[in-house]
Structure formats: structure tokens, C-alpha cells
Nucleic acid binder design. Structure first.
Length: 430
DNA sequence: TCTGGGGTCCTAGGACCC
DNA sequence: TCTGGGGTCCTAGGACCC
């Protein structure tokens, strides 16, 4: 099933989300901070114009930026996630095949469509997304994902495109011209080291990579880069997926609000991460067979003793029970933690995921344990329901305080306008 | 003083087996 | 002087992405 592919990408997504419910932020420089309010992870156009780089630590932000009216926001993933879902449902109403890619990007499959009419169709779609969600998007259309990515960037960069740009294959002169003036390091999938090696071998532009011999690329690099080269030449190398693929691993980790040495305190944080991981596991209908626990000190604090390590606990049988997963995580922590270190971050990874429906009974498992499992399933379903309807953290496994040293700092968080009753926007009539 | 979190895929190389 | 050869499986780590 081949056909044109479109990439829909929300412009400056996190900043745009902040503006949806606070219109006064339109035109103002808005920067969204990482977890713990550490550094800048998203910038509005105005912030980019101020010369503030991605990843700038909050304490390095220049005074001049604040004088220019810089508005800071803590990450508000509950809001971003909800708005992302709205964009997705809008897309699903207007495209035959939608494959979510990240919180702010989706691929659209247009197999069987006449490429000639697609630009207009996508302009209309872009307009609808904006009307229904308040979020501006750009759309790139091309025969392959790598080219669609390039088209998308062009659409974003040049307002004259009306936010939509379409590329063809190498036989199209306009496509060739764009590839020729695109440095190879700006191609999707080619970054830092590989870009340097390609340049040393004389491959400097996207066009040169598109025209390189795929077998040569494969022998010098890998199949990944070979695929990128083929895609640039207009041959799609991945299928569009009809349904959401499940994650193969679920990682949950956070830095602490401050460095922590106390075992009990870290244990509490880890319980929160393990529970959250288990919740996501159940949401995608999987079971895990192994829990990896990670614990690390602050690598930037060079004057302090360093310790970072991971340990993997194999579970007796695949499970999605918060209790079993938390228990395994705590076993892992007991092996990792050392007295006298001040830790900065801990987390869990749920590994070896399988689909819940494919669960097999263990050889040594007594058949009557089915009843116990059903009880556990019902309990987990109730726990998830309560946390969904009353907000995360309403029911927890073991103590997980809302105010604790391990909790994230988020001093500049906006309201969770669409997911919390008590934070809903108010309209006052007078 | 501060410097995020969550993913995927691929490859190299060791362990192990016949 | 050298001292099999091939295969599979698993894990760690690199590279990249958002």
C-alpha cells in the first residue's frame, strides 16, 4: 500500500498549548522549562528571536530577556497530552490513515489519493485543526517519510507556503533544488557524528546522499543510513501502521526536587515511579517480565562522590500488578542504595513486555491462582479508575506524599485547564 | 546555582553450543 | 608456528529522535 505520506507537526507545541487558554501570551516571548524547572525545552518564535538556545539553564537566562517580557512556564504535560489527543482526533476525522508519532507529530497515509489534490486538502485540514483546537500546525507531503519531514520544515520556515508544502521524487526539479541546498546534517536521522563522517567522505548535501550508492552507504554506515538515503531518493522504506504499536519498554524516572541521601525518601519516590509505570503498562494492555531500577547521583556536582548503577529484577511471572512491580523495584533499590551518597535521580524501566492476552500460565503455577489473579485485576482496574476520575495520586501503593523533597519543582505551572475540575477556566458575566 | 525525560533500532562482542 | 568453525542468543552501548 504505497502513496503520499504527510507529516503534521504542531508549531512550537508546548508554547502554543500555553497560549490556547491564555490569549494574552500571543506575541509574547514564552519559554517552557524542563521537569524541575531546570532548563529551557521549548521556545516561542519570540524567544528564539531573543537568541535563547534550547537547553539554556534557567539561571543563565539573560536579564535582557526578562526586560523584554519573557514568560516562563513549568512543563504541564497533563495539558499538552490532552491537547495532543484533541489534535489526533481531529486528524482522524479527516485522513484515511493516521499514525501518531510523538506528542506533537503524526503521519498521515494517503494511499490511493491523487497527489495533485493533496496540498489543498491539507491546507483545509490545517485550518480545521486550528479552529477546533487553537493550535497551529504545519504539514509536509511527500512520497517518503524522510522527504515529508523535509517538506514539513520548509512549510514551517516559509509563511508563503501557507503552512503546507509538497515534495515529489528526484525527477521533480523543485525537490532536487531543495535537496541540493539542504546540508546533509539537517536530514532526519543524520546527526552529529554521522554527518561529520559523511562530509569527510564528500557527501555534503541531501541530494548527494540521495544519489549515493545504497550498498556503499550500508557498508560504511548501517542499514539505518541506507534507508535514509533511499527515502531521500523517493523510495519509502517503512510501512504506515494502522494501529498504535505498543511500547516495547516503559521508562519512568525523574530527578528529585533536591539531592537526597535518605533511603526511605528515595524508596517513596521509586514507589511513585514504579506505580506510574505499572499504570501505563495496564493502559496499553501489556505485562512486564523484568523491572530495571536505576539510581544515580548528580553527575554535575563533581565535588561530591559519584555513584550510578542499575539492577534488573526478573519477575516470577509476567504481571501488570502495581504491587508486584513496586515490590520488585524496592528489591532493586535495596541492592543499589549505598549509605553516604546524595542521589539526584531514580527510576524504573519495565522490560520484556508482552501482550496481556498472550499470557501463558507458568509451568509450576497452580490453576487456582486464576482466582487470585482476577482479584488483582479487579483491584488494579479500580485503582486506575479512581486515579483517572479524581486525579493522579488519589490512591497510591504505599505512602507517596504530595509535598516531599523528591517531588518535582514546578514553580511556574499553568492550570491543567482541561483535565482538572478545580483548574477549569472561569468565565464571569457581569 | 543550574544543566529533562522517554523512546527506538542497530551492532559488536561475549557466552555458549554442536 | 599453529592449535576448528560455524551458528544462536543475549546484553551493553552507540546513535538518533522528539
Amino acid at each position: 500500500m504505497k502513496g503520499p505520506i504527510a507529516l503534521v507537526d504542531c508549531n512550537n507545541f508546548y508554547c502554543a498549548c500555553e497560549r490556547v487558554f491564555e490569549p494574552r501570551l500571543h506575541g509574547a516571548p514564552v519559554a517552557v522549562l524542563s521537569n524541575n524547572d531546570g532548563c529551557v525545552i521549548a521556545r516561542s518564535q519570540e524567544v528564539k528571536a531573543l537568541g535563547i538556545a534550547m537547553g539554556t539553564p534557567i539561571h543563565h537566562l539573560p536579564r535582557a530577556a526578562f526586560r523584554a517580557g519573557l514568560v516562563l512556564r513549568s512543563s504541564n504535560y497533563e495539558l499538552y497530552g490532552d491537547l495532543s489527543a484533541r489534535v489526533l482526533s481531529t486528524l482522524r476525522a479527516h485522513a484515511p490513515l493516521v499514525e501518531p508519532y510523538s506528542i506533537d507529530e503524526s503521519w498521515l497515509g494517503f494511499a490511493g489519493f491523487d497527489p495533485a489534490g493533496l496540498t489543498d486538502h491539507c491546507r483545509a485540514l490545517r485550518h480545521t485543526v486550528h479552529r477546533w483546537t487553537g493550535l497551529p500546525v504545519s504539514i509536509g507531503i511527500a512520497p517518503s517519510r524522510t522527504l515529508a519531514k523535509l517538506a514539513n520544515r520548509y512549510a514551517k520556515q516559509y509563511p508563503v507556503t501557507g503552512g503546507v508544502h509538497q515534495l515529489g521524487g528526484l525527477e521533480d526539479p523543485a525537490t532536487r533544488a531543495l535537496l541540493e541546498r539542504t546540508p546533509v546534517g539537517e536530514v532526519w536521522g543524520i546527526a552529529g557524528r554521522i554527518a561529520i563522517r559523511l562530509q569527510q567522505m564528500g557527501v555534503r548535501s541531501a541530494l548527494e546522499l540521495a544519489r549515493a550508492d545504497p550498498r556503499w552507504i550500508r557498508s560504511r554506515f548501517s542499514v539505518v543510513i541506507e534507508r535514509t538515503a533511499r527515502e531521500l531518493a523517493g523510495t519509502p522504506c517503512t510501512e504506515m501502521l494502522d494501529e498504535c504499536e505498543s511500547n516495547r519498554m516503559i521508562m519512568t524516572s525523574r530527578s528529585f526536587g533536591q539531592m537526597i541521601g535518605d533511603y526511605r525518601e528515595i524508596q517513596e519516590a521509586l514507589r511513585a515511579h514504579a506505580s506510574r509505570g505499572a499504570e501505563r503498562l495496564r493502559a496499553q494492555g501489556s505485562l512486564t517480565s523484568a523491572v530495571m531500577v536505576m539510581l544515580q547521583t548528580n553527575k554535575h556536582a563533581r565535588h561530591l562522590p559519584q555513584h550510578r548503577d542499575t539492577v534488573t529484577i526478573a519477575l516470577p511471572r509476567p504481571t501488570d500488578s502495581s504491587f508486584e512491580i513496586v515490590h520488585a523495584a524496592q528489591q532493586g533499590l535495596a541492592r543499589l542504595w549505598r549509605r553516604g551518597y546524595r542521589y539526584q535521580k531514580c527510576g524504573t524501566r519495565l522490560l520484556d513486555l508482552i501482550e496481556r492476552d498472550h499470557r501463558q500460565l507458568g509451568i509450576f503455577e497452580p490453576p487456582q491462582s486464576d482466582a487470585g489473579r482476577q482479584r488483582s485485576d479487579a483491584l488494579m482496574a479500580t485503582l486506575d479508575r479512581l486515579n483517572r476520575s479524581h486525579g493522579r495520586g488519589t490512591v497510591t501503593v504505599g505512602m507517596q506524599r504530595r509535598e516531599a523533597a523528591w517531588q518535582l519543582r514546578s514553580d511556574y505551572r499553568s492550570n491543567r485547564w482541561t483535565t482538572r475540575w478545580e483548574e477549569m477556566p472561569e468565565v464571569r458575566l457581569r
